[in-house]
């Protein structure tokens, strides 16, 4: 039992990271109806920025993270304004040109990070310190507990933002129907910029929660697919879904890896991949997403 619990906790720890990245995916999807394939690489790049504040300027860890989020917000907003908008304006309802731009961003960040900061992996501190607590004979480490708490805070902040602020309401308006929103005077462009900015800023949290494995340009290549699986399962337009989906993906893949020899630790990605396929086949809107209505 305690062994099961141990791997359950491990799965929660992994899942919390997937969920954090999935939230960033969801924010952009809500705002624009698009998947940002560069989400992981942007988070990696932002984590390097945090590392720059932390290691380069010698700031304490959390202020570095906050500064990194601010810079990333600006970066995300600028990317939307300068690189995404010109393309999406031209493309109209066709998502593909923008998808290709995000793949260009994927390559660009992947190449830019080592060019700026070197290929050697950087030591990055554990956000919540090392150590663990015992629960029913299994241990759960501070990193997992901290990431889970951070995740809860994120969902709360996003809930308040979307439900209780003007900006949030406007963003929801744009997401559900941008033409109508524009008609009632919502500055659609600004909302899209904010969406990208928020997504980039929250992505930082995923990066810094992972980076204690060693920060290099490959940091988020692994988590990205799991995060997409999480967002697929939870529903691409639901932050809560991203959290639940992330935790389920984390726990299920770790338990399968440990208990099912046919999967094992070297093929954990397979269940995540199959999950994406099955969800798209059976319930494409995911657990918490709204079924999509296509307009002619």
């Amino acid at each position: 039992m305690s062994e099961f619990l141990q791997f359950f906790f491990l799965g929660l720890g992994r899942g919390a990271i997937y969920a954090t990245l999935a939230i960033a995916v969801v924010i952009i999807f809500r705002a624009t109806g698009l998947l940002n394939f560069a989400q992981g690489q942007m988070a990696m790049f932002s984590t390097f920025i945090v590392w720059g504040f932390y290691d380069g300027f010698g700031l304490p860890l959390w202020p570095s993270v906050l500064l990194g989020m601010v810079v990333s917000f600006l970066m995300g907003a600028l990317i939307e304004r300068l690189l995404i908008r010109p393309v999406s304006d031209k493309a109209g309802h066709n998502p593909l040109p923008v998808v290709i731009v995000t793949i260009g961003l994927f390559l660009g960040f992947q190449a830019l990070a080592p060019w700026l900061w070197g290929e050697t992996a950087k030591p990055f501190p554990q956000l919540f310190g090392s150590g663990s607590v015992e629960i029913f004979g299994a241990s759960i480490d501070y990193q997992t507990l901290g990431t889970l708490a951070m995740l809860a805070a994120e969902v709360l902040v996003l809930y308040l933002l979307f439900q209780r602020t003007k900006v949030g309401l406007a963003m929801r308006g744009v997401a559900s129907n941008s033409e109508s929103a524009a008609l009632v005077g919502v500055p659609v462009g600004n909302m899209l910029m904010i969406g990208w900015g928020l997504s980039a800023a929250f992505g930082v949290l995923a990066g810094v929660a992972t980076a204690d494995v060693g920060l290099d340009s490959t940091l988020m290549l692994g988590p990205l697919i799991y995060a997409f699986a999480a967002a697929t399962l939870g529903g691409f337009d639901s932050p809560l879904g991203a959290v639940v989906g992330g935790l389920i993906v984390g726990v299920v893949t770790e338990l399968l890896a440990h208990y099912v020899d046919a999967i094992g630790n070297d093929l954990k990605l397979l269940p995540a991949f199959l999950l994406i396929l099955v969800v798209l086949l059976v319930r494409p809107q995911g657990l918490f997403g709204k079924a999509q209505v296509t307009r002619v």
Partner: peptide
Amino acid sequence: VYNSDSPDVTAQITALAG
């Protein structure tokens, strides 16, 4: 075993420590 693409080997070490 672990996969060289996923350097987080906590799960494996946890199992070995067991």
